[in-house]
Each structure stands twice: as C-alpha cells, then as structure tokens.
Design a protein around this nucleic acid. Structure first.
Length: 348
DNA sequence: TAGGCCATCTGGTCCT
DNA sequence: AGGACCAGATGGCCTA
C-alpha cells in the first residue's frame, strides 16, 4: 500500500540530524499553528525530507548544476536532456528566499484547504443525516449531496413523496453501506432493496425488519435527521399523481455515475428564493436549514399541521420513538412501514 | 496489520 | 513575481 522510503518514525532522528536547516524550518512554521498542526510535526519533517531529496542539501546544491546534461537514471539509462533554462545555482540567499516562499505557500495552501473543509462542513450540515459525532467522509458528503439534489428534484418533478422508499433509495445510491445506514436511519426508514449494489446487502437485519445492518457502526446515536428536515419533508406535499412517476427510482434509477436529469423544471422555484449575500448567509446561518425543502413547503405547497415547526418535533411520534424501536404500525402520511416491507419484496 | 481517511508539504501549471 | 489550484507523496490516526 504505502511505500515507505524511510521508517515512519524509526530512523527519523538520524535523518533529521543530518539536515541542519530542517529544525529551523519546522520552528518557523506559522505562529498560528493549531494543536493539530503541532501534533503533526513529524509529518512536516517528513515533508521536508521529501523536499530535501529533490532540492538537495546545501552541500549538494553546489554540485547540482555540473552534470545537468548527463543525467543517468537508476538503471543506468540516460535520461533525456533537460529542457528549458538551466537551473540557477541555489546560493544561500536563493535558498532562503525559496524557503520563505515555500513557507508562505504552505500557509496559503493550508488555509485554502481549511476553507474547502469548512465548505464541506457546511454542506454536511444541510445533509439529511448530519451528525457532529459521525461525520461523513468528504467523498460520501459529496455523493450524498449529489443524491440529495437529485432526490429533491425528483420530488418536485414527479411529486414523489420525500418519505417514499424511492426517495431514500435515491439518497443512498452509490453510497457506502455505513452511510446508507446513516441516511436510512436518519430518515427512520428501512433498507432499500436497490441499495445492494453499493449501499450494502439485502438490508434486513436480525431483530428488526426495518433496520439496516450496520456493521461497524458505532452505537447510536449517530446521524439523525434534524426535526426541521423531516418536518419540512413531511409538510411537503408535492403534486400527487395517480400513477407512480416513470422516473421513480424503484422503477429505474439512472446509474449512479450516469448523468442525472438536471433540476431544470425546478430551477425557477429555487431561483425565487433570494439568496442572502455571503455575509448575510453567515449571519443567518442555521445548522439545518434544509433551505429548499423548507422554502418549498412553506411557500409553494400546502403544509400539513405536522409539517409546521410550530407543533415542535415532539408533536410527531417519529420524534418520540427511537430509530431502533420504531414500531411497525407507525403510520406516515403517505408511507408506512408495511409499505416498505412489501417494497422490499419487490411488489412496488 | 491492512486499509480508509485525513492533513500537510511540495512542485508544477496557469493566470494576473 | 506571486497567488490559486491541483495532484502526488507522506505519515498519523482509527477501525475491522
């Protein structure tokens, strides 16, 4: 798996002592270094050694330019002549400037990645299974976000209920089994028969027909669907069709990596919402806005009593029952566990 | 212990 | 020249 040109920790001190400038650089890391960063000094050292191999120590730099034209590969073969301007000698001053540039660039790169991670965190918060303790991985967050948009589009386009089996199936499409468990658990719904490809196995776990098998999952509670999420979903009653939508997931979902139908038909709806400026959105940010579903439920579609937050989460049995003890006879507005059980048998 | 995920460093490339 | 972005490399942490 990982190649280890040098020991992860063992021979490090030897290498470190042979590189005088190394310690200096480590100590010259940004002053605002987080504890996390401090805990990763070994890693920084590793990085330095990596770069050292490429740049060479100061002693090596003096020789570096001389045999430029006759580079010989590890197997003795001649490497092609290096093109472009000849490398200038790395004088001490140049090296110092280079180091300073690198340190600055590293700091920028760190903050850039932090910004990216912050954005990912914000994305996690609006996912239907946000949990502070059970963070979705980056890749799973992106996949779920993609599915979420897709599923909400389907809700708007075809009137499919956000509580339907198909909705969960769409959310879980292509997700890992633990993430699928998380999503299904958060939605208080059972496993999907369609998620066997990547989402996991058949999904019926011993003890409860509605629970996902959850190998390796920590004890509950982990991700949970925020009350507002579910209430908004429950409140949302899109146009109801007599016949199931031809686009319904269970009747033929597009392949996971295939092109999805863009939510063109709903873009107008979304566009109606005045997006706050970055500043405003920061100020007004709420952990679980479920913006689109909320907006739709409160502005475009009739909202049931349970669909309003006024009643509070405890107003619905869904929020009184543990996910793991959800009785089979809980009736949803348009979806029941029995519904699910039959769907698992492929009768829908 | 292998594998997954992550943070960081780094050099290259493109753009201003 | 310098910054943003990217991908590769590396090592740490955690879990099955």
């Amino acid at each position: 798996m990982m190649t280890k040109p040098f020991g992860k920790s063992g021979d490090m001190s030897e290498l470190v002592s042979s590189l005088g400038w190394l310690e200096e650089d480590v100590s010259s890391q940004d002053g605002d270094e987080s504890p996390e960063m401090r805990g990763r000094h070994g890693l920084i050292v590793g990085g330095r050694i990596h770069s050292c191999n490429e740049l060479g120590s100061e002693d090596m730099e003096e020789e570096e330019e001389e045999d430029d034209d006759e580079e010989v590969g590890p197997n003795g073969e001649k490497a092609p002549k290096r093109r472009g301007p000849k490398k200038k000698k790395m004088t001490k001053a140049r090296q110092e400037r280079f180091r300073a540039r690198r340190v600055k660039a590293n700091a920028r790169e760190r903050s850039r990645m932090h910004g990216l991670n912050d954005a990912l965190d914000n994305l996690r918060r609006v996912m239907p299974c946000y949990s502070k303790t059970q963070k979705l991985s980056k890749i799973e967050t992106l996949r779920l976000a993609r599915n979420y948009i897709w599923a909400l589009s389907e809700v708007l386009e075809s009137g499919q209920s956000p509580e339907s089996h198909g909705f969960v199936e769409m959310l879980c499409k292509g997700l890992s089994q633990p993430t699928s468990n998380l999503v299904a658990g958060s939605l208080q719904l059972g496993p999907s028969s369609m998620t066997q490809d990547k989402c996991g196995g058949p999904g019926v776990v011993a003890g409860h027909p509605l629970s996902y098998p959850s190998p390796g999952l920590p004890s509950p509670p982990y991700g949970s669907l925020e009350a507002s999420h579910l209430l908004h979903m429950k409140g949302f009653k899109g146009p109801v069709y007599d016949n199931p939508s031809p686009n319904e997931c269970s009747s033929g979902t597009p392949p996971y990596d295939g092109p999805l139908t863009p939510p063109l038909s709903i873009s107008g709806n979304f566009a109606l919402k005045q997006e706050p400026s970055p500043h405003e959105s920061e100020r007004n940010y709420t952990p679980h806005p479920s913006h689109h579903a909320h907006y739709l439920s409160s502005h475009h579609y009739p909202t049931s009593t349970t669909g309003s937050l006024a009643g509070g989460p405890q107003a619905h049995p869904l929020f009184q029952a543990s996910r793991y003890e959800l009785p089979l006879d809980i009736a949803f507005d348009s979806f029941t566990p029995s519904h699910l059980v039959t769907s698992q048998m492929g009768t829908i």
